[in-house]
Simulated assay, not measured.
Amino acid sequence: MFYAPMAGYLIVAAVSVFLIIAQRKHAIGRNSAIGIRTRHTLASDAAWDAGQ
Rank of each mutant, 00 (worst) to 15 (best):
P5K: 07
L19D: 15
A50Q: 14
V15H: 10
A13I: 04
Q52Y: 08
P5D: 13
L42Q: 02
K25Y: 02
V12S: 11
V17P: 05
V15M: 14
T41L: 06
P5N: 07
G8E: 09
M6W: 10
V17R: 12
G51T: 03
T41Q: 03
A47F: 02
A7L: 15
N31D: 05
R39G: 02
G35L: 01
S32F: 07
W48T: 01
A47G: 01
S16C: 12
H26V: 04
I34F: 11
G51K: 04
A13R: 04
N31P: 03
I21M: 08
I20C: 07
A4L: 10
D45M: 03
L10R: 10
F2R: 09
A22D: 12
M6H: 09
R30Q: 06
Y3S: 13
L10E: 14
L19E: 14
G35K: 01
G8T: 10
W48V: 00
A22F: 13
H40D: 11
A7E: 13
V17F: 08
M6P: 03
G8R: 09
K25M: 11
N31S: 05
P5A: 09
L19Q: 10
S16P: 06
Q52K: 14
G8Y: 12
I11Y: 08
Y9N: 13
P5C: 07
I20Y: 08
T38A: 00
Y9L: 15
F2Y: 06
D49G: 00
V15K: 05
V15I: 15
H40Q: 15
Y3F: 15
L42V: 00
G29P: 00
D49T: 01
M6D: 13
K25R: 10
T38V: 02
V15Y: 08
A46W: 02
Y9W: 14
